[in-house]
Design a protein around this nucleic acid. Structure first.
Length: 401
DNA sequence: TCTGGGGTCCTAGGACCC
DNA sequence: TCTGGGGTCCTAGGACCC
């Protein structure tokens, strides 16, 4: 049976949501109508553009470029800080409105959802539902969305990306040659800045070129990715709408340091703060991890990582920090200026799984109790209240979510 | 280059085993 | 020793997404 899929994409999400929030608080200006961006904090060396208004886009400002560059392109551009709780709030509002149409919703990111409408179309057409969603979100929530209408996720996502803002586009199989094939390959989902130049060298410039090229040759050159890009170019995608929230496969935190660090003692302090954040989230999910990895980025943007396995799965701050510290020392033999430190925990299992199969030793039980107490303090008084890295100057400058 | 942070998935190469 | 072949697991790094 043919599937009926919608992709709902909030237009300039972070900026629109900030605009709606400001208006609600009595602001006289709507930042959607002026050259404006949402940006990181330049003093913390995270000054990149996270979202832009249409007027800012007209100046040539692009997402992910530096605020410095944005200012050169558009000297009068207004810059607003990002505020995750606000985005979360509006994302929830959108999700709840969409739930009135189907419970088969995949939250692809904070501002994008896929809806599987296959079983929910009695009399109405998919297109009419899309138009209704588009209208209702604007009227009831105060921001606009693009809605892509298609028979699979890839085509729905491509459709929602066509022209913006506040539009509904269809991309059915018979429309592929006219609506999708003329586009440059850079527009195809999953083709990024590394692959596009390689395809250009093969004289593949449009999605049509890619669709008509030899699948075998693509496979030889790009492996699995080659097959996938050929299928996408031909509008083939069998992926399901994953509407059941999945537990994460890995949890990590990283931070760009306000200034480069060369002293390993200071790197250890940062690492501990990051481990605390990550294990706190791990425990909230009731997950345990076995693989710990540490990531470093030098001042010259050279990335490196090291990983190692723990004897048994855990979410204890102490055990994971111990491993992380060991890895840090392994990879930091000769001092060099470090710009970013990160930690990740992978190979996650359910806490219950381990409790059923093994009994814990006394020491790890004690650690677990300690972490529990700290976690409950964090819940009560906020994250910053109990951070062991707070002692150092540099530690105070790291931002916590 | 004044270049974020959180993810997922894939791959190449090495170790090890039979 | 003119040194197999396949499978699995692990690690480091890379590509991509929002």
């Amino acid at each position: 049976m043919e599937r009926q899929i919608l992709h709902v994409d909030v237009n300039n999400a972070f900026l629109s949501w900030t605009a709606v929030e400001m208006l609600k608080q009595g602001s006289k200006i709507d930042i959607r109508n002026i050259p404006a961006i949402i940006g990181g904090d330049e003093s913390k060396r995270s000054g990149i553009v996270l979202a832009k208004s249409m007027k800012a886009k007209e100046c040539g400002i692009k997402t992910a470029e530096t605020i410095y560059q944005a200012r050169i392109k558009c000297p009068g551009v207004q810059i607003f800080p990002s505020h995750y709780p606000t985005y979360k709030k509006y994302s929830e509002q959108l999700y709840h409105l969409l739930l009135e149409y189907t419970d088969k919703i995949e939250r692809f990111s904070i501002d994008e959802c896929f809806l599987d409408m296959t079983q929910y179309l009695m009399k109405d057409t998919l297109l009419n539902k899309a138009k209704e969603i588009n209208k209702r979100v604007k009227e009831e929530l105060g921001f606009t969305v693009n809605v892509g209408v298609a028979h699979n996720k890839l085509l729905a996502k491509m459709a929602s990306d066509f022209t913006k803002p506040d539009r509904v586009h269809t991309l059915f199989e018979n429309e592929i040659p006219t609506k999708m094939w003329p586009l440059p390959i850079s527009e195809l989902f999953m083709l990024g800045k590394k692959t596009v130049p390689k395809l250009y060298n093969m004289h593949i410039k449009t999605i049509k070129d890619l669709a008509n090229s030899d699948k075998k040759i693509l496979e030889k050159k790009f492996g699995k990715h080659g097959i996938q890009m050929w299928e996408y170019a031909n509008g083939i995608d069998h992926a399901e709408v994953k509407y059941k929230p999945e537990k994460p496969k890995g949890i990590g935190n990283s931070t760009t340091l306000p200034e480069n660090i060369t002293q390993i003692e200071k790197l250890e302090e940062i690492l501990l703060a990051l481990v605390e954040q990550s294990t706190y989230r791990l425990r909230k999910y009731e997950l345990l991890g076995t693989t710990v990895s540490v990531q470093l980025r030098t001042k010259d943007f050279e990335d490196s990582s090291h990983q190692g396995k723990l004897m048994e799965a855990t979410a204890n701050t102490k055990d994971i920090y111990q491993k992380a510290k060991e890895l840090l020392h392994q990879m930091y033999q000769t001092p060099k200026p470090i710009r970013l430190v990160g930690v990740r925990i992978d190979n996650l299992i359910e806490k219950e799984e381990k409790q059923l199969s093994l009994f814990q030793n006394e020491n790890s039980k004690k650690q677990e109790k300690l972490d529990k107490v700290i976690d409950s303090l964090k819940e009560k008084y906020g994250y910053q209240s109990v951070t062991r890295a707070g002692k150092l100057d540099i530690g105070n400058k790291i931002k916590f979510k």
